[in-house]
């Protein structure tokens, strides 16, 4: 028999490969799903030419992006210009490391947690990485040496910093209720009732903040097409643009996963296996993202700031106090 550690290593490799493949194809098909859903919302079919029902569209897009000219602005900062899309995509990808997507499996007589790395401070890791993601955008806009790109990245910075605050504050009640920073612990704390039901204000604030963090409608002012062309990625083309693009959709998946983990009870659910519940919930939140994009118009910059600082932050703060008080009372 193989030594024990080899089997462990193989299993870990399989798990990592599964997660990576799932995330990337998930992101690719999320693009297709978004295009088809938006199409239907606008009485169109969406992509339906490449493959049956247009299912090969992501592949065609990838080929197209790879074959496009890789354009670098003449006066741009080349090194930063190369690095920026990488930061955007990689930070999005490695965030998934702490997200538990199913109940622990038992394989070959060993416990196998369905999470890449169950950190006890997983929530802080998530918050840290999501802050890091800002760099990709800020540097991309700066290195392009274009007024539109710079404007876009400045807007993105302001927006992400503002909404990070309300996002962080809306997580505090969850930590209070679960008494842990570990995401697995948080999921397990919702075995019976998801936190969304226990603490709906925190859920709503988190959902909205997450929408803003993903820079999607109605919070897409960093790339507002009719004002600043394409915002921070105006000067990007080919696969570099593709990395920003993939990063955005991975981000959607990760943020949906976070919503699932923090508020919707993760993999917990009746009848079906945990992993199906988990991905079902993620897809539901992702659909909500797309649905919102098809429904709501873009905020104006001042409205965005007003909403973040004067509405969400106070609500989240109040919620922290109230939740804390209730928890104190219940304990006392």
């Amino acid at each position: 028999m193989m030594p024990d550690w080899i089997i462990t290593a193989i299993l870990v490799a399989i798990k990592l490969g599964f997660v990576l493949a799932l995330l990337l194809t998930g992101a690719a098909y999320l693009v297709l799903a978004e295009r088809k859903l938006l199409g239907r919302m606008q009485l169109r079919y969406g992509p339906n030419r490449v493959g049956p029902f247009g299912l090969m569209q992501p592949l065609a897009d990838a080929v197209k992006l790879l074959m496009k000219e890789d354009f670098i602005p003449a006066q741009g900062d080349k090194v930063l210009f190369f690095i920026a899309p990488g930061i955007a995509a990689v930070t999005a990808l490695i965030t998934f490391a702490v997200i538990p997507f199913g109940p622990p499996l038992r394989l070959f007589g060993r416990e196998m947690p369905l999470v890449v790395c169950d950190l006890n401070i997983g929530l802080l890791y998530f918050l840290g990485l999501s802050s890091l993601a800002v760099y990709g955008i800020a540097l991309g806009g700066w290195a392009s040496n274009s007024k539109y790109a710079l404007l876009g990245s400045i807007r993105a910075l302001a927006q992400l910093i503002s909404y990070e605050l309300s996002m962080g504050l809306s997580i505090v009640p969850v930590v209070l209720m679960a008494r842990s920073f570990s995401l697995t612990e948080i999921v397990n704390a919702q075995t019976h009732i998801p936190f969304a039901l226990l603490n709906p204000p925190a859920f709503l604030v988190f959902l909205i903040s997450v929408l803003a963090e993903s820079k999607r409608t109605p919070f897409d002012i960093p790339e507002a097409e009719n004002e600043i062309v394409a915002g921070f990625h105006t000067e990007y083309s080919g696969m570099r643009f593709g990395m920003f693009f993939v990063g955005e959709y991975i981000n959607v998946i990760i943020l949906s996963s976070m919503v699932t983990v923090l508020f919707l009870g993760g993999w917990h659910g009746p009848l079906l296996p945990g992993i199906v519940w988990f991905f079902g919930k993620v897809m539901l939140i992702a659909f909500l993202f797309i649905w919102t994009r098809g429904t709501l118009p873009r905020f104006r910059y001042d409205q965005l700031m007003h909403f973040g600082w004067k509405v969400l932050v106070p609500i989240a703060l109040l919620n922290v106090v109230v939740t804390g008080a209730i928890l104190l009372l219940l304990q006392g």
Binding site: L37, M41, L43, T295
Partner: peptide
Amino acid sequence: TLRTMFRKPV
């Protein structure tokens, strides 16, 4: 938008 999704595209 949800309702429109289920109508026949033009």
